[in-house]
Amino acid sequence: MKRYNRQIRLKGFGMEAQKKLSASSVLVVGAGGLGVPVLQYLNAMGTGCLGIVDDDVVELSNLHRQVMYSEADVGKYKADCASRFLQARNSETTIEVIKERFDLSNGENLLHDYDLLIDATDNFQARYDINDCCVARGVPYVYAGLQGFEGQVSVFNHHSGITYRDVFPVPPSPLEIPDCNTNGVLGVLPGIIGNFQAMEAVKILCGLDGLLDGKLLLFDALQHTQRIIRLKKSAVKQALTKGDEIESVSSAAFRKLLKTNSNMKLIDVREPDEYEAGHIEGSRNIPLDTLQKSELDLATEATVYVICASGVRSARAVSFLQREKNMKAINVDGGMNKLKKYGMDT
């Protein structure tokens, strides 16, 4: 604890907060522009465990803003380089390296042991997947995004229950809003905004005041203005929120149904390789993407059950089938993972 002496001395922080920080675990998704400052400060300040989720390698064009990486790191996995860098500066931190892309197929499992997630990603798909997985697992997260000389920061899925989908209900199409690769980004901006995220993370983990829960911070680096928007829970039904908004069946009840209802219509929305590795007999494999895109003839009077690995993709599929196809669809809570956990063979 000696190394944390200066912040333990700080009025309003102290030993109690330091202990909370040391006992906490944070999953940082994205080790790029935003992730680099978040990881460096959470590591230095004594966060107990840090998970680094990133499947990219370091490129020369990253170095102007991702200041943790060196020229020698070019071509190597960011998650590996980050882990080495961070351990050299604080050997007390437990670091989990996850060289995967966070999405609906692995998100809920990755979140399993973490108190908090940091959305340090750079694309909308990942942002919506993170939101939905955090909502499904009840994990709060710190959001940030950048454009031009501006940044946005907020804390979602915390006490106020406000989520990313309350603010931006409809995912933008890829061409609608440019990303940093197309539009460019000034090296220092993710440094500033990522440090705001680290600050919010510490507030949540240590119980400090002034959290951006239910508030959206808009930062303009040119004018040095900060504006805080008070958010509202959306009255509109969300595409995916907690269980009560879409019809679902518990894992236990579903297992009973499988035994009694031999005519059950079951759609498995996982990818073909996941399906091949084990599935429920009689189920039909239609990956979520295919289901949402195609004009598949699904019309049926019967109730359709939908399953995936953990219940997140299937919830999206159920929402889609109800809304777009006017079908009676029911989500299998916890998906294949939960069924397997309770000993069902597939």
Partner: peptide, 25 residues
Amino acid sequence: NDYASPETPLTENDEIALIPPVSGG
């Protein structure tokens, strides 16, 4: 500075902010 719905009434002295999502990171 309050998140608004389509029905939120406006008066002459209001200050409006248009906030699109941003993807960069």
